[in-house]
């Protein structure tokens, strides 16, 4: 049985359109190295768990004294 010529043409057109779309994807172009690195930075977020880790470590820190103990002593 021969394929329906209308359907076949439609399929061919769709296929051609997909192929041309794939071929015409330009990729990316950057004006210079810095632009490329900026793009890369935007694509590179820090790990989500890092914030919690920093937060936990800071919570465990004793608040540092604003002045050395001996300065506070002599100020009395």
């Amino acid at each position: 049985m021969l394929p329906d010529p209308k359907k076949s043409r439609l399929n061919q057109q769709q296929q051609a359109r997909q192929e041309s779309a794939q071929q015409s994807q330009p990729g990316l172009e950057f004006a210079g190295v810095e632009d490329l690195l900026r793009h890369d930075r935007e694509q590179t977020p820090p790990p989500a768990a890092l914030e919690a880790r920093v937060k936990q470590s800071i919570a465990a820190e004793a608040p540092p004294p604003s002045r050395p103990w001996w300065k506070r002593w002599f100020k009395r």
Binding site: G27, L28, E29, F30, A31, G32, L36, H39
Partner: peptide
């Protein structure tokens, strides 16, 4: 000074 062209962005990093 010439632009940098990248065709494949998948493994750009």
């Amino acid at each position: 000074d010439s632009p940098l062209r990248v065709l494949e962005t998948k493994e750009l990093g």
